[in-house]
């Protein structure tokens, strides 16, 4: 085994708890969003069981929300899969960044932590600071977030079945609030700003022009805009 044992690591139960505590702000912040996903799924026509299954098995807020929007717009299977593939592609980067730390672990740990590897968990997992990863800490952070997300979805399903048109209350602002808070610290270069501006413009254009593949186009053009900007900057230097 190549991974070393951190001499500062505490007993598993303590690390689980520390991970849970560290994740608490995001677990709270994500609650309205989980609630929205539950209530919205019913409105789109999913059964309560299907709605909960989305959060239990897919466990990816953006993909869930976007897929529900596409289902509501009567988009086909292929369109949903292509969009999901593009939205979820960023997770490839997270697993790549954590490869050295997680791949030496036993299979059940790899599968477990892999399943729990959300944007939020990645933000809370030291990826390249040289310190060994404490698997119990990561499990505490990931699992507590998973439970919070699913409880929020359950509440959304319960409320959604009791109160019709719940989603018209403007719950989707929870997504705007959460994503904005995650996005702002990410904009550290002109290239990233260029990526965001392009993705936003194409996405709004797609919404106004009612393009089926609007989101897909927006994400791709944003990624290429940032990349080309960065390459041009390097070329000019």
């Amino acid at each position: 085994m190549s991974h070393t044992v951190d001499p500062n690591s505490k007993p598993p139960s303590k690390e689980l708890w520390l991970g849970t505590i560290a994740m608490t702000p995001l677990s709270i912040a994500v609650a309205p969003w989980g609630f929205l996903v539950g209530a919205y799924a019913l409105e789109v026509g999913l059964s309560p069981l299907e709605a909960q299954s989305l959060s239990l098995f897919v466990f990816a807020g953006t993909s869930q929300l976007v897929a529900l929007g596409l289902l509501q717009a009567q988009a086909g299977f292929v369109a949903i899969m292509l969009t999901t593939a593009l939205i979820t592609s960023r997770h490839l980067l997270y697993s790549m960044a954590l490869r050295d730390k997680i791949s030496p672990l036993p299979a059940r740990w790899r599968y477990g932590l892999g399943f729990l590897l959300t944007d939020e968990l990645f933000v809370h997992t030291p990826s390249n600071d040289g310190k060994p990863l404490n698997k119990w800490y990561a499990l505490g952070a990931g699992l507590s977030f998973y439970i919070a997300w699913n409880l929020a979805t359950l509440l959304g399903i319960l409320a959604g079945s009791a109160i019709p048109n719940l989603t018209e209350l403007g719950l989707e602002f929870a997504v705007v609030a959460t994503f904005t808070a995650m996005l702002v610290p990410m904009i550290r270069s002109l290239a990233i700003a260029c990526c965001c501006a392009t993705a936003s413009t194409v996405a709004v254009l797609g919404a106004v022009m009612d393009w089926q593949a609007g989101l897909l186009l927006a994400i791709l053009s944003g990624m290429f805009a940032g990349f080309i900007f960065e390459q041009a900057q390097e070329y000019l230097q």
């Binding site: 953006t62 980067l93 602002f173 705007v176 990233i192 990526c195 936003s200 996405a203 927006a218």
Partner: peptide, 17 residues
């Protein structure tokens, strides 16, 4: 290129909303 996926996804979801 993939490094731009996260900001692109976040922006593309928020902006139309």
């Amino acid at each position: 290129l993939m490094g731009y996926a996260t900001p692109a996804v976040l922006s593309a979801v928020i902006a139309p909303m």
